[in-house]
Design a protein around this nucleic acid. Sequence first.
DNA 1: GGGCTAACTGACGCATCAGTCAAACCTTTG
DNA 2: CAAAGGTTTGACTGATGCGTCAGTTAGCCC
Lengths: 206, 206
Amino acid sequence: MTTGAKAEPRSDEDRRARILDATWQLIAERGFHAVRIADIAKVCGTSTGTVHYYFPGKNDVLAEALKYCVDRAFARQSSQLRAVHNAHERLLKLIDMQLPRVGQVRDEWAIWLQYWAEATIRPEFRPAHNEYYARWQETVRRIVQRGQRQGVFRAAADPHIVALRLTALTDGAAIQVLTGVPGMTIGTMRELLVDFVHQELVADVS
Amino acid sequence: MTTGAKAEPRSDEDRRARILDATWQLIAERGFHAVRIADIAKVCGTSTGTVHYYFPGKNDVLAEALKYCVDRAFARQSSQLRAVHNAHERLLKLIDMQLPRVGQVRDEWAIWLQYWAEATIRPEFRPAHNEYYARWQETVRRIVQRGQRQGVFRAAADPHIVALRLTALTDGAAIQVLTGVPGMTIGTMRELLVDFVHQELVADVS
DNA sequence: GGGCTAACTGACGCATCAGTCAAACCTTTG
DNA sequence: CAAAGGTTTGACTGATGCGTCAGTTAGCCC
């Protein structure tokens, strides 16, 4: 409903992908547990039977939709980041791409919040979640290491620790934006993260 | 099921409180949307009719249960913090009390995750959420100001900013603990937060 | 054309729950 | 004691939605 690409899929076997695409957007809009198979079918212009034809049960559609969304987002980020060679700029670019503005990125953050709530309660969601989360942390860590090689980041910083902190800080700030905490806007969030990067990785003294 | 006080309520009109107590624990265990009126009644040793006698609808029970939990946790924290007079120690005590160990505190964190997921989707949850979140941030901010008055914290730090950062960092770290991100344990979380406090508020240079 | 299969449909069966209600129960007051 | 009013019960209802399945259509090979 928001900004997801809804262009006609070329042939038949990405019907599956169409279903997943509709599903993750519905999750982002209405929440994990408010999504009905009938809603998915309606958005896809198909029947509930078809959804069950491709996925054994509702849980499977939902779980795969989460993965699908996170995967696409990661791929998109990666490809855009590759174009930026300076590590400092690349990190700032990453931060910028992750700001939960309205639209696509905000919906993706909504997915993460749903994912967290679900993974807390249902341990079977954790392995997949942790894989994706680790991949994200690793992206950050690599940029830090790259920056140290390039000499734009302090050599003394521990990339692992910095990644842990920066991801935590990003998540926490995103929560405040998404839940509408007064005083936490997109701008505040960017400032907060940029400052953090500067203090941890750029500033001269320790 | 975990550690909530389940002692016999003295008379009749805290039957309401008993229901809320059972409800928030069920939310923490099973998730917001998996809680059934019948479950609440069963835990309370009463009937579904009684639950509806005290609360007009399911939504009311759930929403009030969230508030109830957050309120109790806040009161408990406040009373324990009051005993610590040195601001630095008080902040460390706060951090310690908020580590999501198993049991009560972990359940309370689970409630926050559910709250966030819900507030993201349903704007009507935001006002209450933001009120509680603001109260928490204010607690942190006041401790920082207190520390500056006492001279144990750097005067240059902006209490508002520090509170924003520390709460975000805490939330982010808690998510990683609750979702079981490898490498993020209670110990790591404490270390991360204590380091942050030291760097932002205690270390000499800026 | 005639068999075969894969893709798709949508009505139906069945389970699950929120909320209702009339009756039962208990407590208080006159 | 009796009436009144507050509280509790649990069977019931109506709605909702998942998953199934018998049936349909479309493509494909012989």
